[in-house]
Design a protein around this nucleic acid. Structure first.
Length: 956
RNA sequence: GCCCUGGUGGCGGAAUUGGUAGACGCGCAGGACUUAAAAUCCUGUAUGCAGUAAUGCGUGUACGGGUUCAAUUCCCGUCUGGGGCACCA
């Protein structure tokens, strides 16, 4: 009986399905374990072999945990809202819901092929109204919440209103508007609009303004992704930034907790470091620079520019100031003579992405405003410039420039011929800024001769004393933009209620004149149909954008206009649905709540979360924030969503190339063009990997694929084959290097495919796919199969007692595989299986005592294979209900070891000693060994290093 | 540019806490079985030098330094591949 993997896999897939083997209950006496994969975006291209890598790893771990006695939650779903589906809809007119559905069906089919133990009854889709009902509901909670800094937690906005009624906002400054100040009486006197505006500056979900990429030609807002080299990806039209009213999440209020929370997480240091850098906490000072009264014309209220600096010690080195071109003071301080130049420069900056502004540091640009500021300590007049290297979103959007101490300031000063004050003495060469934080300051007034580290505090004290600033903690983290001018996303449960003419003051646009209310507010009590969730995404006829950069929903006037007012036409961004989906899996069909509290308390936080490191800061940070908000509001009992994080690497594509001399219509094999001597002009073309075996090209298949080369000559290698060139690249359709898991499963079976994906290398590492190598793993499974089944004789397992050597192999394997799974080292466990099978085959072992346990052991890796063997052993329940074999020390203990013996660190001999041997007896024997004596060359041993169980080293 | 991460045979990789570098697999070469092929099995395979050979000696973990009895592993510097940089998901 041979290893008929196709029949075996079909049979058990059906069995698992029919018997609901992977059904998970929320009610179990077993300890829980929650292992989660980052759910995929179902793209039209389907899965390639890189996608399942993490899923296979988590599947192995999930099965291992289940075999070890846990109730394991291992769900899967789809992050189904997103730009590509909408893009496709624009191009083809097909509704994103339809294409998404189709893509999901395809994904599901591909996933099913691989034999995962997902409980599909718990599947979630973010685009399903039953799901996004709760995304919208959570948005409402965010809207109705503010962050109480005194208690360090989010609370219902009503508690803030109570506070305002009692004492105004003197003890609760607004995070969104630092200048806002009112007392209880003033609050009482505010109009409804004024009150709502005040509250808006506190809410965790709030409206403000942000810049987006606007493409006039396409009449739409573009994602960063859709802007390539400063023009739109589609059509290559010019783009510029446009300020729009947008929803935001006030994640900055959580900056400190998001930072502190990292310490207790079992994530890689790299991942934590990326989040720390993203949050970007820095200590420094906020310093106010006054403008010179003579030069700042009119506009009496503009008297100060605030900067944030982490280096207040360098304050005596300030030679000029730079504002972000978007800074609100720029227009006010610019002098008439400079106005045109400034406007032109601002226009230029509008075309620049933030990335370009950060990256292209060698290209120095800027413009003088004509205004001067007064140095807060020396009262020197310093010019105020604007430049793209200062970003509006960081700090105060303005800097004090210290050219002798900061590289970019230095380059700027050199470029515009601004004077440079040296405050570092010899340390500053005049060539480069001195940006290290050691050394003594010079030319710095009262800071002269003081070490930089100490000078920081002294400088801050002096600035505070002079009333020119304060100590400040700054975060790089910015509030998260939460609006997209798109169709395929969650609609907001928000309605803008127009003001009655009596209440509305002044002009302004509609948005300014109306007040945003969420649909659940009492103001809509008379329209209960408006208050219901979900606010369903209406069907549209066209996916083209609405007027003035609004999303496509703006075109649906009968949807936008409600008896209560106009609906919000933006939709939520991709990370809305993915910020909380791990909670929904716990109780996916609940229509009364996002999940039942009992289920949440049972499953609690995700024990292991697996996904790509590209989500290091986006998704993972937003999820952490949502979790903290929900924890603060008492909705869940934990404040970190993912206890342990594993980052899987990418599987890269391995592209194949052929080499053409077009003139002679001849293709040359790789070796012939390497080097390409005397062959004329050689073009490198891609060949689809599907008709290349290793590097050998199937010439006929290639000609069929590219008929224009049907008559081409092929110059072969000495072995009579045409060999392709190889390069490792990203796996993508356009590179013709995509390998479909379906094909692999078809040819070798799911079990081989699973084991091979793991065998390729460590899960966390990126590595290229090599189809050729899969045969080795397939051979291994066949070889293991033969321990149980002979081609002629069939079942050959016997009841004979196992030998010591056989039991040692088994227990060595149990130990190694168990430990390897625990540390997510699956490639080495596959190796161990191979070693075990090689050794057992050599011993001609067919003993039940060894092989039954081995079958269970391999179940996490090759579940169909294991299930078949398990039933062959006569069991009639699933192998998933077996227990992971127990490792027993006694079978593997050895009492002696062959030690490598080195002289001066170089291994020269191998000697065997008992493990409990004393150093003195070992020394005696080692020094008596002829090889060792030879290498000691007559010198006396200085010392003999003996590391028990490891090695011996003689130092002479 | 900034942040994170990797670099070990022809290839994927192993070496878990500083202790015999190259496990396991692919590929390649040779052989067995076969009319032949497939499948299967066996042997060899980092590299240089010496030797018919067993083997011996040297070099070697991107590069250059350092710490140590001992470094793929720790430290400093350089080169280089990959990921992220706030509207791709």
């Amino acid at each position: 009986m041979e290893y008929a993997f196709r029949d075996i896999e079909q049979k058990w897939k059906k069995y698992w399905n029919d018997n609901k083997v992977y059904k998970v209950s929320n009610d179990s006496p077993k300890p829980k374990f929650y292992i989660l994969d980052m759910f995929p975006y179902p793209s039209g291209a389907g899965l390639h072999v890189g996608h399942p890598l993490g899923y296979i790893a988590s599947d192995i771990y999930a099965r291992y945990k289940r075999l070890s006695g846990y109730n394991v939650l291992h769900p899967m779903g789809y992050d189904a809202f997103g730009l590509p589906a909408e893009q496709y809809a624009i191009e083809t007119g097909q509704h994103p819901a339809v294409t998404t559905e189709k893509n999901i069906a395809r994904y599901r089919e591909q996933l099913d092929n691989i034999g995962f133990c997902f409980d599909w009854d718990r599947e979630v889709r973010t685009s399903d109204p039953k799901y996004y009902k709760w995304t919208q509901w959570i948005f409402l909670q965010l809207f109705h919440s503010w962050y109480d800094r005194s208690e360090n937690k989010a609370k219902n906005i009503n508690t803030l209103i109570e506070l305002f009624e009692k004492e105004g906002n003197k003890n609760t400054p607004s995070p969104g508007n630092a200048d806002l100040s009112f007392d209880a009486d003033e609050w009482e006197a505010f109009s409804e609009k004024e009150k709502r505006d005040v509250l808006m500056s506190y809410r965790l979900a709030y409206l403000s303004f942000a810049e987006v990429w606007w493409c006039e030609a396409l009449g739409t807002v573009l994602a960063n992704d859709e802007v390539v080299n400063g023009v739109s990806e589609r059509g290559g039209h010019p783009v510029e930034k446009k300020r729009m009213r947008q929803w935001f999440l006030r994640i900055t209020e959580y900056a400190d907790r998001l930072l502190g929370g990292l310490d207790k997480l079992d994530w890689s240091e790299a991942m934590k470091e990326m989040q720390r850098n993203w949050i970007g906490k820095s200590m420094g000072a906020e310093v106010s620079f006054s403008l010179t009264p003579t030069l700042s014309e009119g506009e009496g209220d503009v008297t100060q520019i605030k900067v944030f600096t982490t280096r207040p010690d360098t304050i005596f080195g300030v030679d000029f100031m730079v504002l972000a071109p978007e800074h609100e003071l720029v227009d006010k301080i610019t002098t008439e003579t400079q106005r045109q130049a400034i406007n032109e420069y601002k226009q230029y900056v509008k075309s620049r992405s933030e990335r370009e502004r950060m990256t292209e540091v060698k290209q120095v640009t800027g413009c003088f405003t004509g205004a001067y500021a007064i140095h807060p300590l020396t009262e020197k007049e310093i010019p105020v410039w604007i430049s793209e290297y200062v970003l509006a979103g960081y700090g105060t959007g303005a800097i004090m420039a210290v050219p002798s101490g900061d590289e970019r300031d230095h380059a700027f000063a050199k470029h515009f011929n601004l004077p440079i004050t040296n405050i570092f003495g010899d340390k500053y060469t005049g060539e480069n800024a001195y940006s290290e934080k050691t050394g003594k300051l010079e030319n710095s007034g009262f800071l002269n001769g003081i070490e930089i580290a100490q000078a920081i505090d002294i400088a801050i004290a002096a600035i505070v004393n002079a009333g020119k600033g304060r100590k400040k903690v700054n975060y790089k983290l910015r509030d998260a933009g939460f609006s997209r001018q798109r169709y395929w996303g969650e609609p907001f449960p928000v309605i803008y209620r127009s003001l009655t003419p009596a209440l509305s003051k002044g002009e302004g646009d509609v948005a300014q004149e109306s007040i945003p209310y969420t649909t659940d507010e009492t103001i809509f009590d008379e329209y209960p149909e408006l208050q219901k969730l979900p606010v369903e995404l209406p069907k549209v006829d066209t996916y083209s954008p609405g007027p003035e950069g609004q999303g496509p929903l703006a075109n649906l006037s009968n949807w936008v206009d409600t008896p209560g007012g106009k609906r919000e036409t933006n939709t939520m961004p991709g990370y809305a649905g993915s910020s909380w989906y791990f909670l929904r899996y716990m109780d996916p069909h609940n229509d009364e709540a996002f999940a039942d509290r009992k289920a949440i308390d049972y499953w609690s936080a995700v024990d292991i979360y697996i996904g790509g490191s590209e989500h290091a800061v986006g998704h993972l940070l937003y999820s952490r924030m949502w979790t903290k908000v929900m924890y603060d509001l008492g909705l869940i009992g934990f404040d970190e969503p993912f206890k342990k994080l594993i980052n899987q690497g990418m599987i890269q594509g391995s592209s194949r190339f052929v080499y053409l001399n077009r003139e002679h219509n001849t293709f040359y094999t790789f070796n012939r063009v390497n080097p390409p001597v005397g062959l004329g002009k050689i073009e490198t073309l891609r060949a689809d990997v599907s008709f290349v075996n290793g590097t050998e090209l199937d010439i006929e298949a290639f000609k069929k694929w590219r008929p224009e080369y049907a008559n081409s000559e092929f110059v072969l290698d000495t072995d009579g084959k045409y060999h392709c060139g190889v390069e490792v690249e990203k796996m993508s359709k356009s590179k013709y290097n995509v390998v479909n898991p379906d094909d692999m499963v078809n040819q070798y079976g799911a079990d081989t495919f699973r084991m091979y994906e793991m065998f390729l290398g460590p899960v966390e590492m990126s590595k290229p796919w090599d189809t050729k190598g899969i045969e080795g793993v397939h051979r291994f499974l066949k070889k293991m199969w033969r321990l149980y089944n002979d081609e002629q004789k069939g079942w050959v397992v016997t009841d004979e007692a196992a030998s010591e050597a056989e039991l040692r192999i088994l227990h060595k394997t149990i130990k190694k595989v168990g430990e390897d799974i625990e540390r997510f080292s699956f490639n080495t466990s596959v190796s161990q299986f191979m070693i075990a099978v090689n050794e057992l085959t050599a011993l001609n072992c067919h003993k039940c005592e060894v092989l039954e346990k081995l079958a269970v052991l391999i179940c996490p890796f090759a579940p169909h294979f294991a299930e078949e063997l398990w039933h062959q052993f006569g069991h009639n329940t699933s192998v998933m209900d077996a227990s992971f074999p127990k490792f027993e020390e006694k079978y593997v203990t050895e009492n002696s070891k062959k030690y490598p013996v080195a002289v001066n660190g170089k291994t020269r001999a191998e000697l065997e000693f008992a493990l409990d041997a004393e150093q003195s007896s070992i020394e005696k024997e080692v020094l008596a060994d002829p090889t060792i004596i030879k290498w000691m060359e007559g010198k006396a041993p200085k010392k003999v290093i003996y590391v028990k169980g490891k090695m011996i080293n003689v130092v002479v």
